[in-house]
């Protein structure tokens, strides 16, 4: 870790323990989040990216189970392991230190409460005084690019994009240090998505917070993230600065993923990745990507590849690199 590290995930593994099988949703993931940084976590469905995000807030519920590792948060009161926090500490930690905008955020507002009441409740709960709350609601709505008259609205009176902005305002309402966005713009149209994301990035600069951006859309990550983690089958396949990941992807999965999306700029023909991701409830021998990989060789079949450095700050979990 470096001095500016604010969160550190160390060797984290999460299982979903079902009566008849155990799904290894996340296995041995490590990553750092620095102050003021935008971290992108990219993966397809079932790659474990959302499960990972849940652990950052200790939101994992039955049948999810932490198998090992820790999530260290470096707060103003020294470092602490989020996964060991007591309920009282956790209540302070959520919203005030780390907050999250969910994939289903469009429906996460209470339909029978006015926006101002919902925001006020959160702030009062986290120690803001009644008299400052009022002003703060205006400030937060304005930060999120909404006008004051949204205060009196009910959620159903707002469009999808506006609701998502209310969620941003809510998530920022207690001055968190880290904001996690889990597929926060997936359900929105591109124009609105761009408006919301540029707003979010601006806020990140203004308030110097860190952003963890989780999505399946690798193009989107390229446009906004400083560092990118590509997840596959519960593991990090490749991680590094976003320039490197897109200019010289190393892991065959990253390469194939980039080759599978049509681009507006080049006239290229796209190619899907054959096969499907492995069943995480079964023991995977060797590299999880071996059955879909074009550069597979003997070693991949038996030995699990570790994340190895391919250049400064750029890691890939593939036997092709770093013998």
């Amino acid at each position: 870790m470096t001095t500016s590290t604010i969160m550190e995930v160390v060797d984290l593994s999460v299982d979903y323990v079902l009566p008849d099988r155990t799904i290894k949703a996340v296995s041995h993931v490590s990553l750092d989040v620095n102050k003021g940084e935008v971290i992108g976590i990219v993966g397809e469905s079932g790659s474990g990216k959302s499960t990972l995000a849940m652990t950052f807030l200790k939101l994992l519920e039955y049948p999810g189970k932490i198998k090992g590792g820790k999530v260290v948060y470096y707060g103003s009161e020294g470092k602490s392991d989020v996964l060991k926090m007591k309920p009282s500490a956790l209540r302070k930690y959520r919203w005030k230190e780390v907050s999250m905008i969910f994939q289903s955020a469009m429906n996460s507002l209470n339909p029978v409460m006015r926006i101002e009441d919902q925001m006020g409740d959160v702030m009062v709960e986290h120690g803001y005084k009644e008299d400052e709350v009022d002003e703060r609601i205006d400030y937060m709505l304005q930060l999120a690019g909404l006008t004051k008259n949204v205060r009196k609205s009910f959620p159903h009176e707002l469009s999808g994009g506006m609701k998502q902005r209310v969620n941003i305002a809510l998530a920022l309402s207690c001055d968190p240090k880290i904001l996690i966005a889990d597929e926060a713009t997936t359900a929105l149209d591109v124009v609105v998505q761009r408006q919301i994301l540029t707003r979010l990035l601006k806020l990140k600069d203004d308030l110097s917070i860190s952003l963890i951006f989780i999505t399946h859309d690798i193009s989107l990550v390229a446009n906004i993230a400083d560092k990118v983690n590509v997840m596959y089958a519960g593991k990090i396949a490749e991680s590094g600065p976003s320039n490197e990941i897109f200019d010289s992807p190393q892991h065959p999965y990253t390469k194939a993923l980039l080759a599978s999306i049509p681009s507006l700029e080049q006239e290229k023909s796209v190619k899907g990745i054959r096969g499907t991701p492995p069943d995480l409830s079964e023991e995977i021998k060797g590299c999880p990507f071996k059955d879909r990989c074009d550069s597979v060789f003997d070693r991949c079949k038996n030995e699990v590849p570790e994340l190895k450095m391919v250049s400064q700050g750029h890691y890939a979990a593939c036997h092709l690199y770093g013998r």
């Binding site: 690019g145 909404l146 006008t147 707002l158 469009s159 994009g161 506006m162 902005r165 591109v190 124009v191 609105v192 998505q193 761009r194 408006q195 994301l197 540029t198 707003r199 990035l201 601006k202 600069d205 859309d217 690798i218 193009s219 989107l220 390229a222 446009n223 906004i224 993230a225 976003s242 320039n243 990941i245 897109f246 200019d247 980039l258 999306i261 681009s263 507006l264 700029e265």
Partner: peptide, 27 residues
């Protein structure tokens, strides 16, 4: 134009310009 402009491009050199973030959304 605005639609084409908003499409994410898988190229980190084309980061978005944050000045246009002032836009209001209305329905």
């Amino acid at each position: 134009k605005s639609l084409i402009d908003s499409i994410p491009v898988p190229d980190p050199k084309k980061k978005w310009n944050l000045d246009e973030s002032k836009g209001q959304i209305s329905e």
